[in-house]
Computed example of a mutant assay.
Amino acid sequence: MTQAATSSPRQSKNAVASVNGQIITSEQIEKPLASQLYRMQQEIYNLKRTQLEQTIAQILLQKEADKKGISLDQFVKEVILPQGVQVSDEEVEKYYTQNQESLKEWKGTQEELKQQIKTSLEEQKYYQKINEYIQTLISRNKVEIYLQDPPLPSVNITAGNSPSSGPSNAPLTIIELSDYQCPSCRQTYGVTKRIMETFKGRIRWVFKDFPLGQNPVSVKAAEASRCAADQSKFWEYHDLLFGTTQELTTDKLKDLAKQLNLDMDKFSACLDSGQYRNNVLQEAQEFAAQGVDRTPSFVINGKLLPGGPSFERFKDLIDRELSRHK
C-alpha cells in the first residue's frame, strides 16, 4: 500500500488514512480493539508501578542505612534480617504434599527436590520480611504516588431491556457481559454477588449474555435464562445456572426450571423453539464490534472493564465512580 500524498486534505485531526478521499479515523480502528488495547496499557502500567515501588523502597531503605552509616546490604542483614530466615522440614513437607501434582515432572532425586523447595521458601520469606519492613517505612514517611491507572475505554453498550437489579435511577449502572459456561465467569460469580450485596440500593446491575464463539451450550443456556425471565424468574434461574456443576444439556436446563416451579409447558415451548436464539447471537456480535473480546467483562457507566476483577479492585472502581456523583 502506498502512502497518500502529503497534499491530500485531512478532514479529521484523528485521520490515520484515506481511501479515495474517504477518511479512516483512529476511532474506527481502536474501537474493535478496545479490550486488547486496554490490556496492553495495563501491562505497561503494571511494569511502571513495579519499578516505581522498587525505586521508592530503594530510597527509603538507603535513607535508613545512611542514618546508621552502613551499606544497604549490611543494613538488611543487621537490621531487617538479623536472624536470617529459617524454613523448617515441616514447612518443606507441607509444600511438597500440597503441590505434588505440579511437582510430578521433577527429574531429580527427592532429596534434590526438597532442597530446591527449601531454597524457594527461604527466598519467599526473605522478600516477605523486607517488604513488611518497607511498609513500616512507608507509613512513617511522606510517600505520594501520582502514577495513574490507564483510563477504561469508552463503549456504547446500554442496559436496554436486559434483566436488572437495583434502582433504575441509581447513580451508577454496571452491565455484566457473561457466559454461563465460561470458567472465569463462574469464578467471578462470587465476586459479583458480593459486590451487588455490598452496594445494594446504590447501583443498578444489568446482566447481558455474551456466549463467546457462539458456543452452542452457552447460547442455549442464555436462551433458557430468557425463557425463565418470561416467568419473572431470571435472577433465580441465573443463580442456578452459575451454581450447577453439571453439564448444561437441554434436559438439565429444564430440570433447573422445574426446581423453580416454572410453568414447564411454557418454558419447554420457549426453549425448544429457539425463539431467543437470534437475539442472543445478535447482541454477541454487537459486543464484539465494540471491542469486547473476553468474558466476563463489565461496563461501568459507559467504561469497559475487561476480565474478572478481584473484589477489592471492583470495589475501588465503584467507590471512585460513586464519589463523583455525590
Rank of each mutant, 00 (worst) to 15 (best):
residue 102 S to R: 14
residue 103 L to I: 09
residue 105 E to A: 15
residue 105 E to P: 03
residue 107 K to L: 13
residue 107 K to A: 13
residue 107 K to N: 12
residue 107 K to E: 13
residue 107 K to V: 14
residue 107 K to C: 05
residue 108 G to W: 04
residue 109 T to C: 08
residue 109 T to D: 07
residue 110 Q to A: 13
residue 111 E to K: 06
residue 111 E to L: 03
residue 112 E to Q: 14
residue 113 L to Q: 03
residue 113 L to G: 02
residue 113 L to E: 03
residue 114 K to Q: 11
residue 115 Q to L: 08
residue 115 Q to N: 11
residue 116 Q to P: 03
residue 117 I to N: 07
residue 117 I to A: 07
residue 117 I to G: 09
residue 119 T to N: 15
residue 120 S to L: 14
residue 120 S to Y: 15
residue 120 S to K: 14
residue 121 L to R: 11
residue 121 L to P: 10
residue 123 E to A: 15
residue 123 E to D: 15
residue 124 Q to C: 06
residue 125 K to D: 05
residue 125 K to C: 04
residue 126 Y to W: 14
residue 126 Y to E: 12
residue 129 K to G: 02
residue 132 E to Q: 02
residue 134 I to M: 03
residue 135 Q to V: 01
residue 137 L to S: 02
residue 139 S to Q: 02
residue 139 S to C: 00
residue 140 R to F: 00
residue 140 R to V: 00
residue 141 N to W: 01
residue 141 N to T: 01
residue 141 N to P: 00
residue 142 K to V: 00
residue 142 K to A: 00
residue 144 E to R: 00
residue 144 E to C: 00
residue 144 E to G: 00
residue 145 I to L: 00
residue 146 Y to E: 03
residue 147 L to Y: 01
residue 148 Q to N: 07
residue 148 Q to W: 02
residue 149 D to G: 00
residue 152 L to D: 04
residue 153 P to Q: 06
residue 153 P to Y: 05
residue 154 S to G: 03
residue 155 V to I: 08
residue 155 V to T: 07
residue 156 N to A: 13
residue 159 A to L: 10
residue 160 G to D: 09
residue 160 G to M: 06
residue 161 N to Y: 05
residue 161 N to A: 13
residue 161 N to E: 14
residue 162 S to V: 05
residue 163 P to I: 02
residue 163 P to K: 02
residue 164 S to F: 12
residue 167 P to S: 10
residue 168 S to L: 12
residue 168 S to C: 04
residue 169 N to G: 08
residue 169 N to E: 12
residue 170 A to M: 06
residue 171 P to V: 04
residue 171 P to W: 08
residue 171 P to N: 11
residue 171 P to D: 10
residue 172 L to C: 08
residue 172 L to R: 07
residue 173 T to V: 12
residue 173 T to F: 10
residue 175 I to A: 10
residue 175 I to E: 06
residue 175 I to H: 08
residue 176 E to I: 08
residue 177 L to I: 12
residue 177 L to S: 08
residue 178 S to F: 11
residue 180 Y to K: 05
residue 182 C to Q: 10
residue 182 C to G: 09
residue 183 P to C: 04
residue 183 P to Q: 04
residue 184 S to F: 15
residue 185 C to P: 04
residue 185 C to V: 02
residue 187 Q to R: 15
residue 187 Q to W: 09
residue 187 Q to I: 15
residue 188 T to G: 15
residue 189 Y to W: 14
residue 189 Y to S: 15
residue 190 G to T: 14
residue 190 G to Q: 14
residue 191 V to H: 06
residue 191 V to T: 15
residue 192 T to A: 11
residue 192 T to G: 03
residue 193 K to E: 13
residue 193 K to L: 14
residue 193 K to G: 06
residue 193 K to A: 10
residue 194 R to Q: 15
residue 194 R to H: 10
residue 194 R to M: 12
residue 195 I to S: 05
residue 195 I to A: 09
residue 196 M to C: 03
residue 201 G to P: 09
residue 202 R to L: 07
residue 202 R to K: 15
residue 202 R to T: 10
residue 203 I to R: 06
residue 204 R to F: 05
residue 206 V to L: 05
residue 207 F to Q: 07
residue 208 K to A: 11
residue 209 D to S: 12
residue 209 D to H: 11
residue 212 L to C: 05
residue 213 G to N: 12
residue 214 Q to G: 11
residue 214 Q to C: 03
residue 215 N to H: 09
residue 216 P to K: 12
residue 217 V to F: 13
residue 218 S to W: 04
